[in-house]
Design a protein around this nucleic acid. Structure first.
Lengths: 221, 221
DNA sequence: GATTGTTTTATACTGTTGTTTGAAACGATT
DNA sequence: AATCGTTTCAAACAACAGTATAAAACAATC
């Protein structure tokens, strides 16, 4: 359906409006949520006809899902890349890993970039239970959390393997909170810089993790 | 408007449907969100006519706001009461305070009570920016967080007062995460009990906080 | 240049939304 | 029993939602 025979040339127009729709979806849905945006508003922003979203995606919900899938995939991969990069460094440390993982999202949300809004929307939709739970659970928990757990157990010895998932969840909670409530952070602490916040988060979370280390190793780095 | 002269008798019918509507609103909105529930569905659940919501509250949004205000007020007050109670005990400790604050919400969400759903909805709506930000900021941050910060500084000496708000926010993040993602916790760790989770959270957060203590006091309880 | 398959368009359709209306039902006071 | 204010009701309202349709515009092939 919707494929010309020569699929290397002349698919400019098709992918063009299709991508314009995806871009508009990203911007508008993140701003107002699924119900807050009408198909007409969406297509107006993309500069095409109302029927386009049905023609290309088969419905508003399908477009929503597709836009989400892409963003989500990107986010997971970025995080995995960061872990691999940091863990391959010779001077690797728990604090270094935590900072590396936290830096990108924090800076993004502070500078109010698109990536930040997408992640907020992601959480929003998980809460709204309007998103494919399987996708989230498998990709997020299965891939990212498992890898992060491995890395942390490697960095700080003596952690009970039964507890590592709880620890990873707590890290996630620490990252998510400023992400979700950045405006309250900034309202309560107008002079808070991204570096100050990062310093705090690394310090707090690292201490929390090291609380789980084998007491024999507790004092070591 | 809508008040009989003798206001001690015979306001049964009025308050009755009004409360039935608020109850239905609490249950349904928490389940499906504002847009997910129609006025007809709402009034059907409350067993009254569609016009009732406009008659009593002046609109769907006003009913929503009113139901929220009540729940929110209750939640803040409960938390403040817990802090006062714990802080007045002779055997008060940081771990004791944390456990007391975390116990109620965790048990609520694990047993899937109404209170848990309301809190999820609260976060959801803050993310959706559909709620009076002033109400949240003033009550939540202004009252609860300030009191909690005081209590913690009292319990673990040597914390830089400039950092206490960040610490309180991090505590909030630690509590919120299992709250928001309990189903993933249970899916990933089917045998996780409320006590196990509480133990972890208290341990993790307490360690994070004590990481901020004056090094001289670091070893003391 | 006619034909073909793809994309875009304007418009219509069906359903649902929140809200309004005016009359009926109710309960209590006179 | 008549009157009063209050509450409930069925029905209708206008607006907007997502989707479907059929014709037009387009680009490329033969």
């Amino acid at each position: 359906m919707g494929q010309t025979k020569c699929n290397f040339e002349r698919k400019q127009p098709k992918e063009d409006t299709q991508n314009r729709l995806l871009d508009a979806a990203e911007a508008l849905f993140c701003e107002k949520g699924f119900d807050g945006v009408s198909v007409r508003e969406l297509t107006a922003a993309a500069g095409c006809n109302v029927a386009a979203v049905n023609y290309y995606f088969g419905g508003k919900d399908k477009l929503y899902a597709e836009m989400f899938r892409r963003q989500f995939e990107m986010m997971i991969q970025q995080n995995l890349d960061i872990i691999e990069r940091v863990m391959s460094e010779p001077s690797v440390s728990l604090e270094g890993l935590l900072r590396a993982m936290m830096e990108l999202p924090i800076r993004r949300v502070i500078e109010n970039e698109t990536g930040g809004k997408v992640m907020r929307l992601l959480v929003r939709e998980i809460l709204n239970q309007q998103i494919d739970r399987e996708l989230f659970a498998r990709d997020m928990k299965g891939r990212l959390f498992e890898r992060l757990g491995q890395a942390i157990m490697q960095l700080v010895p003596g952690i009970d393997p039964d507890k590592i998932l709880l620890i990873v969840f707590s890290i996630d909670g620490a990252i998510l909170h400023p992400f979700l409530f950045m405006e309250f952070y900034q309202e309560a602490m107008p002079n808070l810089s991204a570096d100050d916040l990062l310093d705090h988060m690394v310090r707090f979370v690292a201490a929390g993790i090291r609380g789980y280390a084998d007491p024999n190793q507790r004092e070591g780095g």
